[in-house]
Structures are given as C-alpha cells and as structure tokens.
Design a binder for these strands. Structure first.
Length: 333
DNA sequence: CGGCAGCA
DNA sequence: TGCTGCCGG
C-alpha cells in the first residue's frame, strides 16, 4: 500500500507532541479504516462482529479515536475515496487476488490451530467495503464529524484541503499524500503510544513531515519526487525491479528518469500517472462543520443496532460531554 | 486500536 | 503511578 519512499524521508520526520496537533486534521479515511479493520481483531484474526455477523472493528476504532481527537483539540474531517482512475485497475485486481489468497490461508491456519499465522493472513484479507464505508459515515455523522466525498482518490482530496488551508494537516500512514502535494503530513496519530510488533513492544509517537523541508532537503521539485515514486512503484504502477528510493533519487537527480524508464520498461508511459499526481481530480464543493455529538444517536446505533455495551459507549461519550462543555466559549462548535 | 482491571 | 495483558462485538 502506498509508495515506499520511507528510506529517503527518514531525516525529515519530526516527532511531535500532541499539544502541537490542535487544529483541523484531514484524515485519509480509507487508510484509517483499513488500519482499524486489520488490527482490531481477536488473536486468531476474527474481527469484532455483532450478533448478525457484521464486522464492527471499524466502528470501535472510529468511536474511541474521534472522541480522543476532540478531547485533544483535534477537529477531524474524514475524506473518503471516490472513483479510482482507470489506470488503477491492475493494482485493484492484484489487491483483490492478494486478499483472496490471504483469506484462504487464514482458514487453513485457523483449521490447524496456528493462531499467529491465522491472524497474519486475516489482517491481509481486510477490505474496506461498502458496508464499512456507509456505517462509518453514519457514525461520523452522529459524532458531529464532517466528512468529504472525494471525486477520485481521497489522498488527493486531503492533500488539496491542506494546501488550500481548509485543514491544518493531513493524516495518513501513506507517503502518497506528499506526492499529491500535501504541505503537512502527520503519521502515527494513535493515542496509545505502545505497540506490539513481532512480540516486541515499541513506542509509536506522532510524526510530522513538511513537504517543503523534504523537497529542499533532497533538492528536488515535487515533480521529481513523483518521478521517484513512479520508479519505485505507486498505487498506479509497479515500478522497476531493483530500483529503490536511494537509486531512484540518483537517477532523477541526474535527469535520467525518462531514459531509465524507456530502457527498463519500454512499453510503459508514465505521463498519465505523472499528470494524475500533479493535478488530481479534487473538489472545492464541500463544507466542513463540526456539530455537537449526538450521544443518544450514537448509543442507538452502536448499542441497539451493533451490540456495543452501553456502559462502554456511555463512558466514552462522557469524556466529550465535559470537553464540549468547556469549549462552548471558544468558537468550537 | 484503545479501555481498563489487576498488580507491583 | 505505571506497566502488562486481556477484552471489546
């Protein structure tokens, strides 16, 4: 998922404290929902589900994260994907196949009692489907959180909203936001700092990337950063085998992007993808307005309809009732 | 992921 | 008070 240019971005990642993050966060909804669906699972990989078998992991994730954001003075706006460009077709088909295989391996591993293996494949089988999207939008509405429907890629729309000042920063784990021109990208926006990765407990802290610093530091234009992405592979193309971000930066710096491509991938034409990153379809037809949490509505949806515990939901909502009360003198809601 | 009980 | 580990749906 996403362009893997992590290695060259390492020097430009800045660990930031929560107090610096008060403001409007344009959240890459697909990225957040995928994260919730893949991680909020039982040890054997089974996601949270209601009595009717509907997956509810994403609803749990949204509820607690959004309420935490509000408490921290972070006003999120979720940005959902629209219609992907035609040239994403191959990637979409490939991912579908990967999910299908992962699903089968999940079953196999569970059948033979290999919990660890089962969970791994279950995570890889996660899919943000129509139900996940519509139920997420419904819950966000009840929480008073605005969401925007992108005409095409949500990442592009989120980047656009930060660029024009509708949001302070974009939130995603993917670096594509930088290719789409997001001036500020924040990663690891999870409240609990401790995470278990392969048995080890590591501390995950929010980190900020400024596009300007990345481009100046690497002495690149945004078009050149996109060229690097295309060489190593994006959501829209496979990239060249044997070329990672380090080699790509060298190639692009020497002005040999086109030359290298025509040599290694003579049939591939990068122009459409380049143009898509530079000028993606985005809209200015949105309104971003936060409303008070509809606590009754949230309880009705989550407890009556999706079997959440009343105690848990109420105590989560209780925290923002206090916060909302304190903020009424601000121009918050 | 995030809440929370249980324990040092 | 801070950490570990289980549970949620």
């Amino acid at each position: 998922m996403g362009v893997d240019i992590r290695d060259i971005l390492l020097p430009y990642k800045k660990v930031v404290g929560w107090e610096t993050l008060a403001g409007v966060a344009a959240v890459d909804a697909h990225n957040a929902l995928y994260q919730f669906l893949s991680i909020i699972r039982q040890p054997d990989g089974t996601p949270l589900m209601d009595s009717r078998g509907r997956v509810t992991s994403h609803l749990s994730g949204i509820l607690f994260r959004v309420l935490n954001f509000l408490e921290l003075g972070i006003r999120p706006v979720f940005v959902f994907d629209g219609t992907p460009p035609d040239f994403k077709g191959a990637t979409i088909a490939e991912r579908k196949e990967i999910r299908r295989e992962a699903s089968a391996r999940w079953e196999e591993a569970r059948a033979r009692g290999d919990i660890v293996e089962a969970r791994k494949h279950a995570q890889a089988s996660s899919r943000v489907d129509e139900f996940v999207i519509s139920s997420s939008k419904e819950l966000l509405g009840l929480l008073g959180i605005p969401w925007v429907q992108a005409p095409s890629e949500g990442e592009a729309q989120a980047a656009h909203m930060v660029a024009k000042g509708s949001a302070t920063y974009a939130v995603s784990q993917d670096y594509d936001l930088l290719l789409f021109g997001a001036p500020v990208l924040v990663r690891n926006l999870t409240v609990s700092g401790k995470r278990k990765v392969r048995g080890r407990t590591i501390t995950v802290t929010p980190e900020k990337l400024l596009l300007k610093e990345v481009l100046e530091g690497l002495n690149l234009t945004r078009e050149q950063l996109i060229e690097i992405g295309i060489l190593v592979g994006t959501d829209f193309n496979t990239g060249i085998k044997g070329i990672g971000p380090k080699k790509a930066i060298q190639i692009v710096g020497e002005g040999k992007f086109a030359e290298t491509l025509s040599e290694k991938l003579p049939d591939f034409e990068p122009e459409l993808i380049m143009e898509f990153f530079v000028h993606p379809p985005v809209t200015d037809d949105y309104s971003v307005e936060w409303k008070p949490v509809n606590a009754d509505g949230v309880v009705k949806m989550l407890c009556d309809n999706f079997d959440f515990s009343r105690d848990r939901v109420n105590s989560a909502l209780e925290k923002v009732r206090v916060t909302a009360g304190q903020k009424t003198l601000d121009r918050w809601f």
